[in-house]
Design a protein around this nucleic acid. Structure first.
Length: 767
DNA sequence: CAGTGAGCGAGCTTCCGCTTGACTT
C-alpha cells in the first residue's frame, strides 16, 4: 500500500515533484486530459439538456488503467492538475473515472515547482470546484457545436474535408483580410531629403552631422526646387533639445512571446520553437513552456538578483514582477525561465543551446535595471527656406538590461538608431557636404508570419498556449493558407544629389514585396472565409471569443448555469445552420473575367474539383468548355482576363528533336519540357515557357541527360547505383536504399545490392 | 512527380485544449 498518490498532468513535472515529496508520496501523471467528448457523432445529447457523452480515447486507455491500478494501491489521493479551467476539468474527470468521492478527494495546486510551494499546497487542500469544471464543459461543448455543425455545411456548400472553428476561422480571417488590404493598397511616393553637414569646430577638427528635412516633397520637380534653395542657403544650428529617457526590459517569456522572439532572432517556426522547448523542459533545463504567465517564483527572483549582482554589480539589479497583460490569461504556470539560473548556457543540440540562451538572457534581463538614455534633437535653420533640417540622436548613458538582451521588433530598424550627435551649440554655422533627395514609396501593411499571427491571436484572447502551434498547422494543412517566400519585384528609385553646387540625377533600383516565410491565403481559404462571413458572422467576429469567455467566467463564479448559456447560444446558431444548408447556393468563388477576344465566349474562373480553374465557354450550347488550372501564386480574386487566357497557351509543342516531340507546360513543380515521356524542368528566372525556343529546349534536354549520366555509377537494369547529394545510394522500383557504412559503391556487385535491399526492407514501408 | 473539370452515391471528413510518444526522413 502506498500512503499518498499525487496525480499531475505532465510526467516531467511528476519527476520533479517526487524529488521534493519524499518516500511517502508517489507521483504519477495523467498526460493531460483523460476523457473527451465521443469522437464519433456530436458527443452531445442536445435534447437532453446538452448532456455530454464522455469517453476515454483509445490512446489514453493505457494511462487510465495504470492510474486505476495506482489509485487502488493508495490510501490518499491528491489531484494536482493545473490551476485553471482545463486543469479543474481534468481533476473532475480523474475523480469520476477513478471513482473517487468528490467530497473527500483532495484537490491541490502548485503555483510553481519549488519545495516551498509544494509543501504549502499539501497543507492547503480543497475540493474540486464544480463551477470551474462547468465553465470548462461549456467551453468544450461550445467548441464542439461550432466545429461539428459548421464543418459539414462547408462539405456540402464548398468542398469536402474542410473545417471551421472558433479559433482557426478567425486566424484565417485575419490573413485573408490582411491580403485584401495589400491587394487594394495603392503605392504612392514622395521625396525625402537628407543632408550631411560639416561643422567647423574651434580646434580645427571637422565633425559631420546627419539630418533630414522636416518636409517631404510630392514629386521630382518640388524636390529639385527645394534643393536649389538648399544650395543657396546658409545654415545655422537652431534649437537643441536634450531629453533624458529610460528603457525598460520586457517581461520574461510566455509561450507567445517566446515564439515571436525565437522567430525574429533565431528564425524558428512556431512548431520548431515548441519542439525544442519541449526537449529543454524534459531535460529539466527550463520551466514549463506552455504558459501565459509572466510570473517568476520568489526563488527565481532571488537567484536572478544574486547572479546579476555578482556578475554586473548592484547597480544592474532591479527585481520586478510583471503583471500578465494578455486577455483571458489563466496563469497556471510560471513564465518560461531557466530551471537553474546559474547556467547561462547548456549542452544539447545547436537549436537547444540557442533557445536556452535566449530564455536565459530574457529572464535575467527582466530583473535588471532600466537603461538610461539621452535623446538629442537638433534643428538646423535655413536662410532661404522656412523648412528645417532635423537631426535626432541617442546616447546610452547607462546600459542596464541592454547589457544582456534587446528585444527585436517586427519592423525594420531605421538608420536613426543609436546615432551619436557631435557636440554643437545654438547659432553655430554649418555648411552642407551633400544633400540628397530620395524617392520613398509608401508600404502596404505587412503579411503575417506564424509568430506575428500568434501575437495577434493572443491580443484578441483567441487560442491558448497549447494550441497556437497546432492551430497554425491546421490552417496550413487544410490549404487555407500557405507559408511562402516571394522574390519581390524591382522598381526604380529616383535620386537627386546636390554636391559642390552641382545637381545630379540618378536612378537606383530597389526590391519591393520580397517575402520570407509569410502566410499567404489560398483561394479555398478566401472562399471559406467569405462563406463564413456571409453566413456565420458571429462566429468569425473578432470579439466572439472574448464575449463567450466573459460568460465562462460567470459560470466559473457560479453566477450562470452552463446549460442555460449553451442553450441561449445554440438555438439561434442551429437555426442559422439549417437555414444555410437549405437555402444557400454552393460557393465556388466564380468570377467572370470577360469574353474571349476572338470567339466571344465567356471566360470565368472558379474553384473546381482539383483546385482553382479557368474556363472558356459554358456547356450551354453543346460545345465542350475548355479548362486550364491556375498556376501557383495566382488568385481567383486577382487574376486578369489576359492572364487567364495565357493559361490556355500551354501545354504547347515547341518542336521536334531526334524523333520526339518537345511539349512545354507548367506542372505542379513549375514549368517543364516533356520529351520522350520524360520531364525536364525549365531554369527559374531564365526560361519562359511561353516564349522558349526549340533550340533552347534541346539544350536543356541535353544538359539534363549529361548530368544524369554522371549520376549513374552502375546500372544493373532493374536497379541502379546512383550518386546523390549525400553520396552513393541504391534505387530499385522507385525506392531508395542507403548503402551500409563503409561500403565501396564501385565494388558492389549485383548480388551485394540484392542483399542490401533485403536487409533494409524490414524497416521500410512501401508508400 | 508533371493535368485531370460527366454524374451518382457510399462512406469519410470536422472542433479546442490538456499532455507525450511512436512513427518516418
Amino acid at each position: 500500500m502506498i500512503e499518498n498518490l499525487v496525480i499531475v498532468e505532465s510526467p516531467a513535472k511528476a519527476k520533479t515533484i517526487e524529488k521534493f515529496l519524499g518516500k511517502d508520496f508517489r507521483v504519477v501523471s495523467s498526460f493531460g486530459h483523460i476523457r473527451d467528448l465521443a469522437k464519433k457523432n456530436l458527443g452531445i445529447d442536445i435534447k437532453n439538456n446538452f448532456e455530454p457523452d464522455y469517453e476515454i480515447p483509445k490512446e489514453k486507455a493505457k494511462v487510465v488503467s495504470e492510474l486505476r491500478k495506482a489509485a487502488a494501491e493508495s490510501k490518499n489521493i491528491w489531484i494536482a492538475s493545473d490551476e485553471d479551467r482545463e486543469g479543474e476539468a481534468i481533476a473532475w474527470h480523474l475523480a469520476s473515472v477513478l471513482k473517487l468521492d468528490l467530497l473527500t478527494t483532495k484537490r491541490i495546486v502548485f503555483h510553481e515547482i519549488t519545495r516551498e510551494a509544494i509543501s504549502d499546497a499539501i497543507e492547503n487542500p480543497r475540493r474540486v470546484d464544480m463551477n470551474l469544471v462547468n465553465s470548462q464543459q461549456a467551453r468544450r461543448i461550445l467548441d464542439r457545436l461550432v466545429g461539428f455543425e459548421i464543418s459539414p455545411v462547408l462539405w456540402k456548400k464548398v468542398q469536402p474535408s474542410l473545417s471551421a472553428g472558433r479559433v482557426q476561422s478567425v486566424a484565417v480571417r485575419l490573413i485573408v483580410e490582411r491580403e485584401r488590404e495589400i491587394i487594394s493598397f495603392e503605392t504612392e511616393s514622395q521625396f525625402r531629403v537628407t543632408a550631411i553637414f560639416t561643422i567647423d569646430s574651434e580646434n580645427g577638427e571637422k565633425a559631420t552631422l546627419r539630418a533630414e528635412a522636416s518636409k517631404r516633397f510630392a514629386d521630382e520637380k518640388e524636390a529639385l526646387k527645394f534643393l536649389e534653395l538648399c544650395n543657396s542657403s546658409k545654415y545655422t544650428i537652431g534649437n537643441i533639445s536634450i531629453k533624458p529617457g529610460t528603457r525598460s526590459p520586457s517581461p520574461p517569456f510566455t509561450t507567445s512571446t517566446l515564439q515571436q522572439e525565437a522567430y525574429r532572432k533565431l528564425g524558428f517556426s512556431v512548431a520548431q520553437t515548441m519542439a525544442v522547448a519541449q526537449k529543454l523542459y524534459e531535460a529539466g533545463k527550463i520551466t514549463y513552456m506552455r504558459t501565459d504567465s509572466t510570473n517568476l517564483s520568489n526563488l527565481a527572483l532571488a537567484k536572478s538578483r544574486d547572479m546579476i549582482i555578482s556578475e554586473f554589480g548592484e547597480k544592474y539589479s532591479k527585481t520586478r514582477q510583471f503583471k500578465t497583460k494578455s486577455k483571458g490569461a489563466q496563469e497556471a504556470h510560471e513564465a518560461i525561465r531557466p530551471a537553474y539560473l546559474d547556467n547561462p548556457t547548456t549542452s544539447g543540440s545547436q537549436n537547444e543551446k540557442k533557445l536556452y540562451e535566449l530564455i536565459w538572457k530574457r529572464t535575467l534581463a527582466s530583473q535588471m535595471s532600466d537603461a538610461i538614455i539621452e535623446k538629442t534633437s537638433i534643428t538646423i535653420d535655413m536662410s532661404d527656406s522656412p523648412v528645417l533640417f532635423q537631426a535626432n540622436g541617442e546616447v546610452i548613458k547607462f546600459d542596464g538590461f541592454l547589457r544582456v538582451y534587446t528585444e527585436s521588433t517586427d519592423q525594420e530598424t531605421t538608420d536613426d538608431d543609436r546615432y551619436v550627435i557631435p557636440p554643437v551649440t545654438k547659432g553655430m554655422s554649418l555648411s552642407y557636404e551633400s544633400i540628397t533627395a530620395t524617392q520613398k514609396y509608401t508600404l502596404p501593411p505587412s503579411r503575417y508570419t506564424e509568430a506575428s499571427l500568434v501575437k495577434k491571436l493572443e491580443e484578441l484572447g483567441i487560442g491558448r498556449p497549447s494550441t497556437y502551434a497546432p492551430t497554425i498547422s491546421t490552417i496550413q494543412n487544410r490549404g487555407y493558407v500557405s507559408r511562402e517566400d516571394r522574390p519581390g519585384e524591382k522598381r526604380p528609385v529616383k535620386i537627386i544629389t546636390l554636391l559642390d553646387g552641382k545637381f545630379a540625377n540618378s536612378v537606383k533600383t530597389e526590391v519591393t514585396g520580397k517575402e520570407k516565410s509569410k502566410l499567404f491565403p489560398q483561394d479555398i481559404g478566401m472562399i471559406v472565409n467569405d462563406f463564413l462571413m456571409e453566413n456565420f458572422s458571429e462566429i468569425v467576429d473578432y470579439h466572439f471569443t472574448a464575449e463567450v469567455e466573459e460568460q465562462f467566467d460567470e459560470i466559473a463564479l457560479g453566477n450562470l448555469k452552463w446549460t442555460g448559456m449553451i442553450e441561449k447560444f445554440y438555438s439561434p446558431f442551429h437555426k442559422t445552420v439549417t437555414n444555410t444548408l437549405e437555402k444557400k447556393e454552393r460557393k465556388t468563388g466564380v468570377r467572370l473575367l470577360g469574353n474571349h477576344p476572338e470567339t466571344g465566349e465567356p471566360v470565368t474562373v472558379r474553384m473546381g474539383r482539383f483546385g482553382p480553374v479557368a474556363q472558356i465557354g459554358d456547356s450551354g450550347n453543346g460545345e465542350k468548355p475548355r479548362y486550364a488550372s491556375l498556376s501557383k501564386n495566382q488568385l481567383l480574386e486577382t487574376i486578369t482576363l489576359e492572364e487567364a487566357l495565357n493559361l490556355f497557351r500551354l501545354p504547347r509543342t515547341v518542336g521536334e528533336y531526334d524523333g520526339g516531340e518537345m511539349v512545354v507546360g507548367i506542372g505542379k513543380f513549375g514549368p517543364y519540357i516533356r520529351y520522350k515521356s520524360k520531364f525536364f524542368s525549365l531554369k527559374k528566372g531564365v526560361d519562359d515557357p511561353y516564349s522558349i525556343t526549340s533550340e533552347r529546349a534541346v539544350e536543356i534536354i541535353l544538359e539534363k541527360n549529361e548530368s544524369d549520366k554522371k549520376k549513374i555509377l552502375k546500372d544493373f537494369g532493374d536497379m541502379m547505383l546512383l550518386n546523390g547529394r549525400y553520396g552513393p545510394y541504391l534505387v530499385k522500383d522507385k525506392l531508395n536504399y542507403r548503402l551500409p557504412k563503409g561500403a565501396d559503391a564501385e565494388k558492389l556487385s549485383r548480388e551485394d545490392c540484392v542483399k542490401i535491399i533485403e536487409t533494409s526492407d524490414k524497416t521500410k514501408k512501401s508508400s
